[in-house]
Design a protein around this nucleic acid. Structure first.
Lengths: 278, 278
DNA sequence: CGCGAATTCCCACATTATGGGGAACGCTAA
DNA sequence: TTAGCGTTCCCCATAATGTGGGAATTCGCG
C-alpha cells in the first residue's frame, strides 16, 4: 500500500521552493518564521539545539524565537527541550475552515459526486496566490488499482505542485493571462521541467487548449497507478478561478468510453459549486 | 438551532485572554505575530488599513508585517487590499494531524464509542502547555435536546476554557501538582470565577475528588441543553495526561441510571487510547 | 488607456534584536 | 526528599535592523 504525500522529504517545506533559507541580513522577522519551516512530517518535534544548528542562531536567539512563537501559540513544548507546532495553528486552520466558502460548497456538493463512481475519489483544490492546496476530499481514502492500494490520507492541506497534475493545470489555465505571463517570467524553468512547454508560445498554447476543452486529464503523472480528470471551479460571476474539482481513479478504470460522462459530471459539480460561491 | 463555537466575538482570539495587545516596546517580533490575532470567525479577511488602525502601526510597518507573513505563507491576499490567513496554516495543521498520536488513536477508537449511544457525540481533547483544544469529534454533528438542536460544527480546533467544562477539568485534575499550583498562582482569579474554588485548598480538594472519581460530569455548564461526562486519557505508562475523552449528550438523556455505564465505556475507550500512545 | 488605490522603495534615526556568560529554574533519577 | 544536570531566562554593551514619513511604482478597475 502506497501513500501519497505522507512521505515528505526530511526538510522540503513547500515555501523553500521559492524562498531559500534566508541569508543573515534578510530581516529577523522573516528569520524567526523560518523556524516553522523546520517542522516536517518526518520531524514533527524539534529540539532547540537542532534549530540552533540548522539555522545558525546563537543559543539566546534560538530560545528567544522559540519563546516568542510559543507565546503566540504557534509552537508548544512537548517535553523538556522538545517543541512541536502549537495549538494556534489548529485554531487558525479552524477559522479558515469556517470562513472558506469553497470548502463549505464542497462539503455540500462533493458527497453526491463521489457516490457516482465507486473506487474513485473527488478532490477539491484551491489556489492561494501561487500555491495550490487540496482543500477537501470525498470518497474512499484509498483506491484499488490492480492489486495496488493507493491512498491519499489526510488530503486537506496536501500541497500540490503548481505546474503538474490535472488539479493544478485546471486552475493554472484559467488564471488571467497577465498572471500566467508573470508566472512564466518568474518560474519558466519549473514550467518547462514539468513538461508544460519549453517557451512562452508553447506554454500559452497548452494552457489555451486546456481552457478550450474545459477540462484536463492526466494518467500516471501524479502516481503511476492513478488517473485524474479535473475541471476549473469559477466564481459565481465566472470572472475568476476559485479552484478545481478533480476525480481520481485507478488508471485501469479510466477508459475512453467513460471520459465524456466523467467530464460532464465534474462540470455539473463545478457549476453547482460556483452558484454557492461569492 | 444553536451552534457552539461558531460565534466568536469579533476580536476575542484566545491568546488575548492571557496576553493583551502588546504595548509598543514589547518586541517587534511578537508585535508582528499579533497580526494573526486580528483574524476571527466573524472577520476572516482584513484590509491593511484595519491592521494599521487596530494595532497602531504606521502604513509602512503594517505593509512590512503583512509582506513578511505573506512570504511565509501565513497570510495570503484574497483581493486588492484584502488579506486572509494563508495556505501555510492549512499545511502546518496537516503536519500536526499526521504527527499527532492522540488524533490517530482517536480515529481508531472513537467511532465504536460514538456508535454505542445515539444522539450523543464523543470528543477527544488535547492539552497544549496551558490550552485545551478539541482535536477530534465522532458522532452526529448536532444533538437534539427536547426540540433544540445543538450542534458543534467543525469541532477540531475549537478552543475550550481551561477551567470550565468536563473535558478541561478531566485534564486539569491530572496535571502534576506543581503545575496546578503554578497555574493557581498565575490564574487563581480565573479559577475562582469558573467556580473551581475560592482558595488553593478548595481548588486542590475539588481536583483531588475528580482524580479520585476518575471522571467529571457536568450538566448545563457548557451549554444549557447539554450534559457531558469526561475521563482523562493518560500516556501509555500512565505518567501524564495526554488529553481527555468526553461524551456529550442531551441534558435530558443524562439519567443517573446510565451514569455508570457511560463512565465505564469512556474509561474503556481511554484505556484503548492509552495503549496506542507513546 | 488612464485614473485612483494599493504596495513598494528610500533613507535618517533610534528602537530593538543580538549573543556571550552566568544564574535560576524545572525536570529526572537516586 | 535531595542531588545533579540540562533547559531556560536574565543582564547588558554593541550594532544590526526595524521604523515611519513621503515619493515612486505598480496594480487593478472602469
Amino acid at each position: 500500500m502506497r501513500d501519497i504525500g505522507e512521505s515528505e522529504a526530511p526538510a522540503t517545506p513547500s515555501s523553500q521552493v521559492a524562498r531559500r533559507p534566508d541569508a543573515p541580513g534578510a530581516g529577523s522577522l522573516a528569520r524567526m518564521l523560518d523556524v516553522l519551516d523546520m517542522f516536517s512530517a518526518t520531524r514533527p518535534v524539534l529540539r532547540v539545539d537542532d534549530l540552533q544548528a540548522r539555522l545558525g542562531y546563537s543559543k539566546s536567539t534560538a530560545y528567544r524565537y522559540v519563546k516568542t512563537l510559543c507565546d503566540a501559540g504557534l509552537l508548544a513544548q512537548a517535553a523538556q527541550g522538545r517543541y512541536t507546532l502549537g495549538p494556534r495553528v489548529v485554531e487558525l486552520e479552524r477559522l479558515m475552515r469556517i470562513a472558506d466558502p469553497l470548502l463549505q460548497a464542497g462539503e455540500a456538493v462533493l458527497p453526491a459526486l463521489a457516490a457516482e463512481q465507486p473506487n474513485s475519489m473527488v478532490l477539491l483544490c484551491s489556489l492561494y496566490r501561487d500555491k495550490v492546496l487540496c482543500v477537501h476530499r470525498e470518497g474512499p481514502e484509498a483506491i484499488d488499482s490492480g492489486g495496488h492500494s493507493v491512498s491519499i490520507l489526510r488530503a486537506r492541506g496536501l500541497p500540490l505542485p503548481l505546474f503538474q497534475g490535472a488539479a493544478s493545470l485546471a486552475i493554472l489555465a484559467h488564471l488571467p493571462t497577465p498572471r500566467i505571463r508573470a508566472l512564466f517570467a518568474a518560474r519558466g524553468a519549473e514550467m518547462a521541467a514539468a513538461g508544460l512547454g519549453a517557451d512562452w508560445a508553447e506554454v500559452r498554447q497548452r494552457l489555451a487548449s486546456i481552457r478550450r476543452d474545459g477540462h484536463v486529464a492526466t494518467a500516471g503523472r501524479f502516481n503511476r497507478h492513478l488517473a485524474a480528470v479535473s475541471v476549473p471551479v469559477l466564481s459565481r460571476d465566472g470572472s475568476q478561478v476559485s479552484g478545481s474539482l478533480t476525480r481520481i481513479m485507478a488508471i485501469g478504470d479510466y477508459v475512453p468510453g467513460d471520459h465524456g460522462r466523467i467530464v460532464a459530471s465534474l462540470q455539473a459539480g463545478a457549476k453547482q459549486l460556483s452558484t454557492r460561491l461569492p
